[in-house]
C-alpha cells in the first residue's frame, strides 16, 4: 500500500453531516424514482482555491455518501487516475478491490460497460450483496418518451407512474440488451447509477428498460431535473 499524496485531494463536503444527508436524500430519490434526474452541483461550494476539484461531482458525491471503509470499490482502467484513487482512499477510506467481481461498488465509463458477468449479482438468499455500478456517460438528459431518438431509454416499473424517458449519449444496442438482461434476473442483478458531471439517474434492477417509442401514455412523465 502506498501513501496518499494530499496535493491532489479534492474538497469534500464542507459540512459533512448536513451535506451527506442531503446527498443521501437525493440518491434515495433517484433510486426510488428511476428515471428522475438529481443534481449535485449545489453540494459543492468551489470557493476554495486551495485544492483542485473534480468535474464528476455526481460520481464523487455518490462515493462520499455511500462508500466507507467497510465497502470495496473497483475502478476501471478508463476512469482510474492517481487523483481519483487517492481521493477515494482518503475521503471514503474504502478498500480498492483487485477484481471487479469482489467489489461492492464499481466505477467505470459507459464505453467500458460491455457485459455484466464480472460483477456481483448477489445470491438468491442475499440479493442485496450485489454490486452497484456508477457509470459515467458522455451526456445524460431526461426526455419525453414520445420523441423518437436513438439514445432514448424508456423506463417503467416500480417507482414510475407510467413511463419515463432518459437520453443517454453513446448508448449501443448491446447496452440496451444488457439493461434488459439485468432486469430479467431480478431479484438478482446489479443497480446502475448513470452519472454525467453533476447529474445522476438511477437504473435499479427492478426497472424495465425498453426502446419502444411513439407510444402514448406519457402521464407521470418527469422532465424536471431536481436541483435541490
Amino acid at each position: 500500500m502506498t501513501a496518499i499524496s494530499t496535493h491532489h485531494l479534492w474538497v469534500p463536503y464542507a459540512n459533512p453531516v448536513l451535506q451527506s444527508q442531503q446527498a443521501f436524500r437525493k440518491l434515495m430519490r433517484a433510486m426510488s424514482e428511476p428515471g428522475t434526474c438529481v443534481s449535485f452541483d449545489t453540494l459543492y461550494a468551489s470557493d476554495s482555491g486551495q485544492a483542485s476539484s473534480t468535474s464528476q461531482t455526481a460520481a464523487f458525491a455518490t462515493a462520499l455518501t455511500l462508500l466507507d471503509q467497510e465497502t470495496s470499490v473497483w475502478i476501471s482502467p478508463g476512469i482510474s487516475s492517481p487523483a481519483l484513487i487517492d481521493n477515494l482512499r482518503f475521503h471514503c477510506g474504502c478498500r480498492l478491490a483487485e477484481n471487479a467481481s469482489e467489489a461492492d461498488f464499481v466505477m467505470l465509463s459507459l464505453s467500458e460497460l460491455n457485459g455484466l458477468d464480472r460483477f456481483s449479482a448477489g445470491e438468491d438468499i442475499n440479493p442485496h450483496t450485489s454490486a452497484t455500478l456508477i457509470v459515467e456517460v458522455p451526456a445524460l438528459e431526461v426526455a419525453s418518451v414520445d420523441e423518437a431518438h436513438p439514445d432514448l431509454l424508456v423506463l417503467s416499473g416500480p417507482g414510475i407512474k407510467a413511463r419515463k424517458g432518459v437520453r443517454v449519449q453513446g448508448l449501443t444496442s448491446d447496452h440496451r440488451r444488457l439493461f434488459e438482461d439485468n432486469h430479467q434476473r431480478y431479484p438478482l442483478g446489479v443497480d446502475f447509477m448513470l452519472t454525467c458531471g453533476a447529474d445522476l439517474v438511477a437504473l435499479p434492477r427492478s426497472t424495465q428498460v425498453s426502446t419502444l417509442t411513439n407510444r402514448a401514455a406519457t402521464a407521470g412523465e418527469d422532465t424536471q431535473c431536481m436541483s435541490q
Binding site: 500500500m1 502506498t2 501513501a3 496518499i4 494530499t6 471503509q69 482512499r89 482518503f90 477510506g93
Partner: peptide, 8 residues
C-alpha cells in the same frame, strides 16, 4: 493502526 493514507 495502519492508516490507508499513510501506508505504514
Amino acid at each position: 493502526i495502519v492508516p490507508e493514507e499513510l501506508g505504514f
